[in-house]
Design a protein around this nucleic acid. Structure first.
Lengths: 275, 275
DNA sequence: GAAGCGCCGTATCGTATGTTACGTATTTTG
DNA sequence: CAAAATACGTAACATACGATACGGCGCTTC
């Protein structure tokens, strides 16, 4: 028995034709606001025709569109009166410990930030905000995507950003370009990769500033690192979670962007001209 | 400067004639629901005539009734998206001074999961858990790392996982390997990439099952997708956040691993032997 | 490969809805 | 107390909105 319209949709969405499913998905995506607007608005947003919207609400069991809207409004009204009983999806909070995975991840993120001081954050930002110092990024088997993600953003707001990719020998050859003023940002969580450790050591010998993103048990690279950010990775899953590191990376990206605001704005404008 | 319509009313209610004041009071009494209904409903509830309602909204500074309703809806939408605003002052956050960036990200993650039903989650997991159906992953400029992250894990627990990389022509050539039973997982958030849309369309024409991870405004690819996950991406930063999609990807990885437990365990054992 | 079915969009229609004009009632002011 | 001004409702109007009929297209099925 579906109580809320959202659940009702979830129940029946599989039995819907393509067009109506698009309607359902758009409604869920910005639930329930689009359903309060006109059929025309709804259809436009969903990219289907008005009749499809009407067939959609009809399939949900409503006689007509206004009736459907009234139901949405009633639901909203009930929700507003008791803010705590927000119609949560079973995944979010629902039935007891329905998603320990999600809760653990959120707590990991919080905990990770809790252990990073403002000063440390600030210091890392400054390291990454010097466009004349080259910044290299690299990660392990599972964390390299995070390095890529960060590189993708940094590349836009400043020059001299390099993501080290490919085989180990490739990275080593780039060592020759790294000096004391340069920064090497490494992601490495369990099981720590020998290749990364070796690489970090060589870079360290050349005086490169190493910023390490690792887990709470600290990669051996920590001994060479100028800064160490210890992300929480434990979740009730066979895998470790890199979510905390990812979020931290995003926070850094934001900070660095703010720091380089003037220069990066000009840079971005130039870039758009090149298209 | 009154921010909300409720405050606006409170400001001006003293300067209103009797009828309009009754309108104002009824609106406040069941704020804002009655304002979302028709003028007739509103007037009936307030015990005044329709023109009085219209004069009332006009006095509030709105050109016409629909404009007034839109304003109410926007207010509601903002309120629903950030339950934080309900939890009172930003000062009393208790432990530590959490940054707005962090809080927004956490809330984005929660909200994203809230809009995904258990059934949908389950369905996507099943799609990704068929080792005989090929699974292709691809992402946009900033989201491709998330696709890579997911691919890195899936590759380990099952065969036939392919991350589409390199130039657009490369992907297209892989289309020939894709059939009705296969799955294409696409990450695409603003600004949506034409190349991805084109590619998705072609894949769709071949009958490929498309699973789309996008933002709440839905990439045009939603049109071709079997499943759409709308992640929240808005944060107080110049960039959009992919954190919610990342966490969702991790959750999926965990579920698929559980689903394929028996087979993947054997597979992993074999892999370690190969080292 | 042909026939049948179901889905979806275009165009049209009827109507509910917001809007406005106007006349009456009520209050205000000299 | 009279006269004017403001407030309010009735009723007519126009628009935009939801609803529907119809035709074409794609998919399945035999």
């Amino acid at each position: 028995m579906a109580s809320s319209i959202a659940e009702l949709i979830a129940d029946r969405i599989d039995a819907m034709p393509a067009g109506e499913r698009r309607a359902a998905q758009t409604l869920i995506a910005s639930y329930p606001m689009i359903g309060l607007k006109t059929v025309a608005d709804f259809s436009l947003q969903a990219g289907v025709s008005s009749p499809t919207i009407l067939r959609f609400v009809s399939r949900l069991g409503f006689q007509n569109y206004p009736e459907f809207q009234s139901a949405l409004q009633d639901e909203l009204a009930a929700q507003l009166q008791s803010p705590l009983s927000r119609t949560a999806s079973p995944l979010a909070t629902g039935h007891g410990e329905a998603s320990p995975m999600l809760e653990a991840t959120l707590e990991n993120i919080r905990e990770t930030f809790r252990h990073v001081s403002e000063k440390q954050m600030r210091d890392i930002v400054l390291h990454l905000s010097n466009p004349r110092a080259k910044t290299f990024l690299i990660g392990g088997r599972f964390t390299d995507p995070v390095a890529r993600y960060m590189a993708a953003h940094l590349t836009i707001i400043r020059p001299n950003v390099f993501h080290l990719t490919g085989q180990e020998s490739n990275w080593r050859d780039r060592l020759i370009d790294m000096g004391k003023r340069d920064v090497l940002l490494i992601f490495d969580i369990r099981r720590y990769q020998d290749s990364l450790v070796r690489f970090a050591e060589k870079a360290h010998q050349r005086g490169v500033q190493i910023v390490l993103f690792t887990d709470q048990w600290l990669s051996p690279i920590a001994r060479f690192a100028r800064h160490v950010v210890a992300g929480r990775t434990a979740v009730p899953s066979p895998w470790d979670s890199s979510a905390a590191l990812f979020v931290f990376a995003e926070a850094l990206i934001g900070e660095v962007t703010r720091e380089l605001e003037a220069e990066s704005a000009r840079r971005i404008r130039e870039m758009e001209n090149l298209r």
